[in-house]
Amino acid sequence: MSEQDAWFYCDGVFGEGEVFELPLTESTHLARSRRLRVGALVTIFDGFGNTAVAEVRELESRPVRAVLRVRQRTMLPPPTRQIHLVSALPKGDRQSVLIDMVTQLGVTDFTPLRCERSVAGQGQRSVERWQRLMLEACKQSRRAWLPRLHAETSLTEVVEDKGLGGYTRLVADPSGVSINELDSAQLEKTNLSLVVGPEGGFSDTETVILRSSNVVPVRLGDGILRIETAAVALVTLVGAL
């Protein structure tokens, strides 16, 4: 892996030739975790498609400070296909696993789903924590576009959301069809909304809502999966099309 493969976040990618200082957390990561030196070439990104190759010009250790100079700037286009994950939340640290892995796999949007049998919900500090996890996952997977975070919603609001009118909607369901039975050529071209319910399953009322909508139930295997496992499996399946 080359030094240029090391990605660092900066709120706004500067023009070619400009000199700037990395934020403290990123400077610390560059100097202490990656142990890069003056002259190293790295990639910086702002989460909105702007990336640049930059050279480390100055490094200070106390306090940590990294100054870079932009060599070449590139604007990367957004993903051609939108993948919007709408998922119930697992408990505790498993939320971090979910957010980290689906970001690496390329979801473009994430909405926490509030269900009758939900065991966890969106807390006051959730958004800040999730944004930080998404940022680190983008750096790991070299994704120039940060996923968009949306407010917690109910299943009724999901199926009635006119903003997803052009999306094909799939829901993880042990009694659903295999994804191999669906039109893969069509799925490959369309934007997708992926729904994952709580581990206790959808309530009878929620099941009626799903069956009366145009959400397609998809089976992910023979077992009953944890929320984060189901989310990762579903995103992986559609991402491989």
Rank of each mutant, 00 (worst) to 15 (best):
A66R: 02
R129T: 13
L30I: 03
E55V: 10
Y167T: 03
V238I: 09
T43W: 07
V86T: 05
A151Y: 01
V38I: 14
Q82Y: 01
W145I: 08
T43M: 04
R226G: 06
D173Q: 08
M75D: 14
G49C: 09
R65I: 00
D161P: 01
G201F: 03
N50W: 14
L24F: 14
D173W: 07
D222L: 06
L146F: 11
D100W: 01
E128S: 12
L30W: 01
W7E: 04
T153M: 06
S178G: 15
G123C: 05
P78K: 10
E26P: 03
E3Y: 11
E3K: 12
G239A: 08
T25H: 09
T236P: 00
D11L: 08
D5L: 07
G12A: 08
E228V: 06
T111G: 07
L225E: 06
I209A: 02
L225H: 07
P217F: 01
V232W: 04
I179P: 06
L220C: 02
G121V: 06
Q82S: 14
R69E: 15
R132K: 15
G197A: 09
P112R: 02
D183A: 10
D11T: 08
G239T: 05
L85G: 03
S178I: 01
P112G: 07
S126M: 05
C115G: 07
R62I: 11
R219G: 10
P90I: 08
I227G: 00
G12K: 05
P147E: 10
V159E: 02
P79M: 12
R129I: 09
L164H: 10
E16Q: 13
A137I: 05
L30G: 01
P217M: 10
G47D: 11
V235L: 05
G165A: 14
V232G: 01
E228P: 01
G176V: 02
L237S: 13
